[in-house]
Protein backbone atom coordinates (compact mmCIF):
# COMPACT_ATOMS: atom_id res chain seq x y z
CA UNK A 1 0.00 0.00 0.00
CA UNK A 2 1.12 3.53 -0.72
CA UNK A 3 2.43 5.51 2.22
CA UNK A 4 -0.36 8.07 2.08
CA UNK A 5 1.39 10.42 4.52
CA UNK A 6 4.38 10.77 2.22
CA UNK A 7 2.49 10.49 -1.06
CA UNK A 8 1.24 13.69 -2.71
CA UNK A 9 -2.43 14.52 -2.77
CA UNK A 10 -4.37 14.70 -6.02
CA UNK A 11 -6.53 17.77 -6.54
CA UNK A 12 -7.88 16.70 -9.92
CA UNK A 13 -8.93 13.41 -11.45
CA UNK A 14 -6.62 13.99 -14.44
CA UNK A 15 -3.67 13.60 -12.03
CA UNK A 16 -4.84 10.14 -10.95
CA UNK A 17 -3.18 7.02 -12.34
CA UNK A 18 -5.14 5.96 -15.42
CA UNK A 19 -6.28 2.63 -13.99
CA UNK A 20 -7.67 4.23 -10.82
CA UNK A 21 -10.18 6.55 -12.48
CA UNK A 22 -12.72 3.89 -13.46
CA UNK A 23 -12.72 2.18 -10.02
CA UNK A 24 -13.09 5.58 -8.35
CA UNK A 25 -15.99 6.49 -10.64
CA UNK A 26 -17.61 3.13 -9.88
CA UNK A 27 -17.35 3.72 -6.14
CA UNK A 28 -18.67 7.29 -6.27
CA UNK A 29 -21.58 6.34 -8.53
CA UNK A 30 -22.57 3.40 -6.30
CA UNK A 31 -22.51 5.72 -3.29
CA UNK A 32 -24.48 8.49 -5.00
CA UNK A 33 -27.16 6.18 -6.40
CA UNK A 34 -27.55 4.42 -3.06
CA UNK A 35 -27.94 7.73 -1.24
CA UNK A 36 -30.52 8.90 -3.77
CA UNK A 37 -32.65 5.76 -3.43
CA UNK A 38 -32.24 5.64 0.37
CA UNK A 39 -33.64 9.18 0.55
CA UNK A 40 -36.62 8.05 -1.52
CA UNK A 41 -37.25 5.08 0.72
CA UNK A 42 -37.03 7.26 3.86
CA UNK A 43 -39.45 9.74 2.35
CA UNK A 44 -41.95 6.96 1.69
CA UNK A 45 -42.03 6.09 5.40
CA UNK A 46 -42.00 9.51 7.04
CA UNK A 47 -45.78 9.93 6.99
CA UNK A 48 -46.27 6.56 8.66
CA UNK A 49 -44.03 7.33 11.59
CA UNK A 50 -45.25 6.53 15.10
CA UNK A 51 -44.72 10.05 16.47
CA UNK A 52 -44.64 13.54 15.05
CA UNK A 53 -41.00 14.03 16.01
CA UNK A 54 -39.99 10.74 14.42
CA UNK A 55 -41.68 11.85 11.18
CA UNK A 56 -39.99 15.25 11.18
CA UNK A 57 -36.64 13.57 11.76
CA UNK A 58 -37.28 11.02 8.98
CA UNK A 59 -38.20 13.84 6.63
CA UNK A 60 -34.99 15.66 7.50
CA UNK A 61 -32.99 12.45 7.03
CA UNK A 62 -34.55 11.96 3.58
CA UNK A 63 -33.44 15.48 2.67
CA UNK A 64 -29.98 14.78 4.08
CA UNK A 65 -29.70 11.71 1.85
CA UNK A 66 -30.68 13.66 -1.25
CA UNK A 67 -28.17 16.34 -0.30
CA UNK A 68 -25.49 13.70 0.12
CA UNK A 69 -26.45 12.18 -3.23
CA UNK A 70 -26.22 15.53 -5.01
CA UNK A 71 -22.87 16.28 -3.41
CA UNK A 72 -21.61 12.84 -4.44
CA UNK A 73 -22.90 13.05 -8.03
CA UNK A 74 -21.19 16.44 -8.31
CA UNK A 75 -17.84 14.73 -7.69
CA UNK A 76 -18.24 12.83 -10.94
CA UNK A 77 -17.86 16.02 -12.97
CA UNK A 78 -14.12 15.88 -12.35
CA UNK A 79 -14.08 12.32 -13.66
CA UNK A 80 -15.53 13.29 -17.03
CA UNK A 81 -19.23 12.78 -16.34
CA UNK A 82 -22.05 15.26 -16.64
CA UNK A 83 -23.58 15.09 -13.12
CA UNK A 84 -26.96 16.44 -14.23
CA UNK A 85 -27.27 13.74 -16.87
CA UNK A 86 -26.38 11.08 -14.29
CA UNK A 87 -28.98 12.43 -11.90
CA UNK A 88 -31.84 13.02 -14.30
CA UNK A 89 -31.41 11.07 -17.53
CA UNK A 90 -30.34 7.49 -16.85
CA UNK A 91 -32.60 4.48 -17.46
CA UNK A 92 -33.41 2.24 -14.47
CA UNK A 93 -30.95 -0.45 -15.62
CA UNK A 94 -28.01 1.94 -15.20
CA UNK A 95 -28.67 2.76 -11.55
CA UNK A 96 -26.13 1.23 -9.18
CA UNK A 97 -27.97 1.66 -5.89
CA UNK A 98 -27.51 -0.98 -3.23
CA UNK A 99 -29.75 -3.98 -4.03
CA UNK A 100 -31.23 -3.96 -0.52
CA UNK A 101 -33.19 -0.85 -1.56
CA UNK A 102 -34.66 -2.27 -4.79
CA UNK A 103 -37.87 -3.00 -2.87
CA UNK A 104 -39.94 -0.58 -0.81
CA UNK A 105 -39.18 -0.50 2.89
CA UNK A 106 -41.89 -2.46 4.65
CA UNK A 107 -43.32 -0.96 7.85
CA UNK A 108 -41.70 1.05 10.61
CA UNK A 109 -39.45 -1.79 11.80
CA UNK A 110 -38.26 -2.06 8.18
CA UNK A 111 -37.52 1.66 8.07
CA UNK A 112 -35.43 1.40 11.22
CA UNK A 113 -33.63 -1.74 10.03
CA UNK A 114 -32.71 -0.01 6.77
CA UNK A 115 -31.54 3.09 8.63
CA UNK A 116 -29.44 0.99 10.96
CA UNK A 117 -27.87 -1.38 8.45
CA UNK A 118 -28.00 0.14 4.97
CA UNK A 119 -27.30 3.72 6.00
CA UNK A 120 -24.47 2.55 8.29
CA UNK A 121 -22.86 0.49 5.53
CA UNK A 122 -22.83 3.57 3.29
CA UNK A 123 -21.39 5.70 6.10
CA UNK A 124 -18.61 3.23 6.78
CA UNK A 125 -17.65 3.36 3.09
CA UNK A 126 -17.76 7.18 3.08
CA UNK A 127 -15.61 7.26 6.22
CA UNK A 128 -12.94 5.31 4.32
CA UNK A 129 -12.68 8.36 2.02
CA UNK A 130 -12.10 10.80 4.86
CA UNK A 131 -8.32 10.84 4.42
CA UNK A 132 -8.30 10.11 0.72
CA UNK A 133 -5.36 11.33 -1.35
CA UNK A 134 -7.97 12.49 -3.85
CA UNK A 135 -8.81 15.78 -2.11
CA UNK A 136 -12.17 16.58 -3.78
CA UNK A 137 -13.57 13.51 -2.04
CA UNK A 138 -12.20 13.97 1.44
CA UNK A 139 -13.12 17.67 1.47
CA UNK A 140 -16.81 16.77 1.28
CA UNK A 141 -17.07 13.74 3.50
CA UNK A 142 -16.75 15.21 7.01
CA UNK A 143 -20.00 17.20 6.96
CA UNK A 144 -21.84 14.24 5.55
CA UNK A 145 -20.53 12.00 8.32
CA UNK A 146 -21.46 14.61 10.95
CA UNK A 147 -25.07 14.41 9.74
CA UNK A 148 -24.94 10.65 9.62
CA UNK A 149 -24.14 10.46 13.34
CA UNK A 150 -27.71 11.56 13.98
CA UNK A 151 -29.11 9.01 11.50
CA UNK A 152 -27.35 6.28 13.44
CA UNK A 153 -28.58 7.55 16.81
CA UNK A 154 -32.09 7.70 15.41
CA UNK A 155 -31.91 4.14 14.09
CA UNK A 156 -30.31 2.77 17.26
CA UNK A 157 -32.78 4.56 19.53
CA UNK A 158 -35.79 3.36 17.57
CA UNK A 159 -34.48 -0.19 17.23
CA UNK A 160 -34.14 -0.40 21.02
CA UNK A 161 -37.60 1.04 21.48
CA UNK A 162 -39.26 -1.31 18.98
CA UNK A 163 -37.55 -4.26 20.67
CA UNK A 164 -39.43 -3.37 23.85
CA UNK A 165 -42.72 -4.12 22.09
CA UNK A 166 -43.08 -7.91 22.09
CA UNK A 167 -45.38 -7.96 19.07
CA UNK A 168 -42.89 -6.03 16.93
CA UNK A 169 -39.66 -7.70 18.02
CA UNK A 170 -40.04 -10.49 15.44
CA UNK A 171 -40.83 -8.05 12.67
CA UNK A 172 -37.72 -6.04 13.51
CA UNK A 173 -35.54 -9.16 13.57
CA UNK A 174 -36.96 -10.20 10.21
CA UNK A 175 -36.25 -6.78 8.70
CA UNK A 176 -32.72 -6.78 10.11
CA UNK A 177 -32.21 -10.23 8.59
CA UNK A 178 -33.36 -8.92 5.22
CA UNK A 179 -30.83 -6.07 5.18
CA UNK A 180 -27.78 -7.52 6.92
CA UNK A 181 -26.30 -9.70 4.18
CA UNK A 182 -26.84 -7.16 1.36
CA UNK A 183 -25.29 -4.45 3.53
CA UNK A 184 -22.24 -6.59 4.34
CA UNK A 185 -21.81 -7.70 0.73
CA UNK A 186 -22.15 -4.16 -0.62
CA UNK A 187 -18.84 -3.26 1.04
CA UNK A 188 -17.22 -5.48 -1.60
CA UNK A 189 -14.53 -8.14 -1.94
CA UNK A 190 -10.92 -7.74 -0.84
CA UNK A 191 -9.56 -9.48 -3.93
CA UNK A 192 -11.48 -7.38 -6.45
CA UNK A 193 -8.84 -5.64 -8.62
CA UNK A 194 -10.72 -2.31 -8.69
CA UNK A 195 -11.01 -2.23 -4.91
CA UNK A 196 -7.35 -3.19 -4.49
CA UNK A 197 -6.18 -0.34 -6.70
CA UNK A 198 -8.17 2.23 -4.73
CA UNK A 199 -6.58 0.95 -1.54
CA UNK A 200 -3.05 0.80 -3.00
CA UNK A 201 -3.24 4.40 -4.12
CA UNK A 202 -4.65 5.72 -0.86
CA UNK A 203 -7.99 6.72 -2.39
CA UNK A 204 -9.73 4.65 0.28
CA UNK A 205 -8.17 3.86 3.63
CA UNK A 206 -9.39 0.31 4.27
CA UNK A 207 -10.15 -2.96 2.48
CA UNK A 208 -13.72 -4.30 2.36
CA UNK A 209 -13.09 -6.85 5.13
CA UNK A 210 -11.81 -4.07 7.41
CA UNK A 211 -14.86 -1.98 6.53
CA UNK A 212 -17.09 -4.93 7.37
CA UNK A 213 -15.36 -5.16 10.76
CA UNK A 214 -15.98 -1.43 11.36
CA UNK A 215 -19.58 -1.85 10.29
CA UNK A 216 -20.09 -4.77 12.67
CA UNK A 217 -18.42 -2.86 15.52
CA UNK A 218 -20.91 -0.07 14.93
CA UNK A 219 -24.13 -2.07 14.60
CA UNK A 220 -23.20 -5.14 16.68
CA UNK A 221 -23.95 -3.58 20.09
CA UNK A 222 -27.36 -2.38 18.87
CA UNK A 223 -28.22 -5.76 17.36
CA UNK A 224 -27.22 -7.34 20.66
CA UNK A 225 -29.37 -4.87 22.64
CA UNK A 226 -32.44 -5.67 20.55
CA UNK A 227 -31.90 -9.42 20.93
CA UNK A 228 -31.24 -10.04 17.24
CA UNK A 229 -27.48 -10.61 17.19
CA UNK A 230 -27.48 -14.35 17.83
CA UNK A 231 -30.08 -15.20 15.18
CA UNK A 232 -28.18 -13.01 12.69
CA UNK A 233 -24.91 -14.81 13.42
CA UNK A 234 -23.31 -11.75 14.98
CA UNK A 235 -21.27 -12.06 18.14
CA UNK A 236 -18.68 -10.18 20.12
CA UNK A 237 -15.25 -11.39 19.02
CA UNK A 238 -12.46 -10.14 21.25
CA UNK A 239 -12.31 -6.39 20.80
CA UNK A 240 -14.67 -6.42 17.83
CA UNK A 241 -17.68 -8.18 16.40
CA UNK A 242 -17.88 -11.01 13.88
CA UNK A 243 -20.46 -12.34 11.46
CA UNK A 244 -20.74 -16.12 11.18
CA UNK A 245 -22.70 -16.20 7.92
CA UNK A 246 -21.25 -16.70 4.45
CA UNK A 247 -21.78 -13.98 1.89
CA UNK A 248 -23.06 -15.10 -1.50
CA UNK A 249 -20.92 -13.64 -4.27
CA UNK A 250 -22.64 -15.50 -7.13
CA UNK A 251 -23.04 -13.12 -10.06
CA UNK A 252 -21.41 -10.28 -8.09
CA UNK A 253 -20.21 -7.35 -10.16
CA UNK A 254 -17.38 -5.53 -8.36
CA UNK A 255 -17.99 -2.34 -10.35
CA UNK A 256 -21.74 -2.01 -9.77
CA UNK A 257 -21.67 -3.71 -6.34
CA UNK A 258 -24.68 -5.70 -7.41
CA UNK A 259 -25.45 -9.26 -8.49
CA UNK A 260 -27.97 -8.51 -11.23
CA UNK A 261 -31.50 -7.24 -10.78
CA UNK A 262 -32.13 -3.54 -10.59
CA UNK A 263 -34.43 -0.70 -9.77
CA UNK A 264 -37.94 -0.81 -11.19
CA UNK A 265 -38.85 1.89 -13.73
CA UNK A 266 -41.21 3.69 -11.37
CA UNK A 267 -38.58 4.08 -8.65
CA UNK A 268 -35.98 5.16 -11.20
CA UNK A 269 -38.41 7.77 -12.56
CA UNK A 270 -38.83 9.15 -9.03
CA UNK A 271 -35.08 9.05 -8.42
CA UNK A 272 -34.53 11.01 -11.64
CA UNK A 273 -37.27 13.50 -10.77
CA UNK A 274 -39.10 12.91 -14.07
CA UNK A 275 -42.31 14.61 -12.95
CA UNK A 276 -40.57 17.88 -12.19
CA UNK A 277 -38.22 17.83 -15.13
CA UNK A 278 -39.91 20.82 -16.77
CA UNK A 279 -39.17 22.84 -13.64
CA UNK A 280 -35.55 21.78 -13.32
CA UNK A 281 -33.23 24.74 -12.80
CA UNK A 282 -29.46 25.02 -12.92
Amino acid sequence: MTDTLAAPAWDKAEQLPEDVRAPLRDLILALADSKRVLGLRYSDRMLGSPTLEAGIAASSMAQDEWGHARLTYALLGDLGDEPKALEHERPAAEFRSIAALDEDIDGWPGMIAAALLVDSALSVQYAALLHSRYTPVHNRVQKLLDEERFHFQYAAGWARRIAQVPELRGELAQALGRYLAPALAWLGRDDAPNVRRLLEEGIVSAAPSALRARFLAKVGPVLSDVGAAESLGIARDGEGWSHAGTLDWAGWNDATRRAGGGLDEETAARARGDKNRALLMD
Binding site: G48, P50, L52, G55, P109, V165
Partner: peptide, 19 residues
Amino acid sequence: IVHSQGTGSYGGGDVAVKE
Protein backbone atom coordinates in the same frame (compact mmCIF):
# COMPACT_ATOMS: atom_id res chain seq x y z
CA ILE B 1 -53.34 16.84 20.74
CA VAL B 2 -49.97 17.86 19.33
CA HIS B 3 -47.81 14.96 20.35
CA SER B 4 -50.14 12.00 20.51
CA GLN B 5 -48.54 8.88 19.11
CA GLY B 6 -49.80 7.42 15.89
CA THR B 7 -52.33 10.08 15.00
CA GLY B 8 -54.33 9.51 11.85
CA SER B 9 -52.98 12.62 10.21
CA TYR B 10 -49.44 11.24 10.41
CA GLY B 11 -50.34 7.86 9.08
CA GLY B 12 -51.10 6.04 12.32
CA GLY B 13 -47.90 4.50 13.60
CA ASP B 14 -48.04 0.76 13.87
CA VAL B 15 -45.70 0.86 16.85
CA ALA B 16 -47.86 3.29 18.82
CA VAL B 17 -51.04 1.38 18.08
CA LYS B 18 -49.56 -1.86 19.33
CA GLU B 19 -48.01 -0.16 22.34
